[in-house]
Amino acid sequence: MRRADRLFLIIHSLRGRRTAMPARRLAETLEVSLRTIYRDVADLQLSGVPIEGEAGVGYMLRKGADIPPLMFTEAELEALVVGTRFARAFAGSRLADGASAALAKIEAVLPPDLRERAAGTRIYAPFYKDDEREAHRHLIDLLHGAIGGRQVIAFDYSDKEGRPSHRAFEPLCLSFWGCAWTLGGWCRLRESFRNFRPDRMSGVVLTGELFTPAPGRDVAAYTDAMRGQFGGMD
């Protein structure tokens, strides 16, 4: 279980309780050690979540506390909704589904009035389905997976002048510029960092070869190179 999911479940388990929940019971429910529960609760307390209690006694939320409004302002919730809409419209299925699932978890514990206001934002990212769009989403998912799995990819590329080339590439990150995606990483043909637009790629395949980013060829070095080139990279 991811730590973010575990922290969410700790808060959810404590909501509405009139008596303290023993740390051991939380540990058994989440299938982690007592030490992990103690550390997670301490981190939640430091971040401002109003959890009362201590090790050996148990934990509960402070009486009258309503977690979502304390954790998120209306503007923050609107940003989450808008971000989910953009992910659904422009990202791959993996990110879109993940964003929607995360938002559903938040909405599940929101008071009705705050949930209604957050969902009522008038910033939209129109979403539609066609063969070209679905192929693009599939490609973004493939590239995203290659980045996470540190897998070398190969593809044919046509630059803005229409000149073709074949590349073996170590993918490090994806960037969205508002109108197009770019894939950044180490190009073995040019032996330097390069950015490629997925919509100009064809025949993208996973080669089966894994790579280990070396100093000077990792994402930190790539970011530094792009910061020098574009004046900013966040």
Score class of each variant (00 low, 15 high):
M1H: 07
R2G: 05
A4S: 14
A4I: 09
D5K: 03
L9R: 00
I10N: 02
I11W: 00
H12G: 05
L14P: 03
G16S: 12
R18I: 06
A20N: 03
M21F: 10
P22N: 03
A23C: 07
R24E: 13
A27R: 07
L30Y: 05
L30Q: 09
S33H: 14
L34K: 06
I37V: 15
D40Q: 08
V41H: 08
L46H: 09
P50F: 07
I51A: 04
I51W: 04
V57T: 13
R62A: 15
D66Q: 14
D66N: 12
I67T: 08
L70E: 11
T73H: 09
E76D: 14
A87K: 08
G92W: 01
S93G: 06
S93M: 00
S93F: 02
L95T: 12
A96N: 00
D97C: 03
L103V: 05
A104M: 03
E107I: 09
A108R: 09
V109W: 10
R115N: 02
E116S: 11
R117H: 08
R117S: 14
A118F: 06
T121G: 15
I123K: 05
Y124V: 08
Y128I: 11
Y128L: 10
K129M: 12
K129T: 14
K129D: 14
D130G: 07
E132A: 15
E134L: 14
H136R: 15
L139R: 10
L143A: 04
R150G: 06
R150V: 03
V152E: 13
F155W: 02
Y157R: 02
E161C: 06
G162S: 02
E170A: 14
S175F: 10
S175C: 10
S175L: 10
F176P: 09
F176E: 15
C179K: 10
A180I: 02
T182L: 09
T182I: 03
L183E: 01
R188W: 08
R188G: 10
L189Q: 03
V205D: 02
V205S: 10
V205K: 12
L206P: 01
T207S: 13
G208L: 09
A220K: 07
Y222F: 15
T223V: 14
D224I: 13
R227Y: 05
G228P: 05
G231W: 05
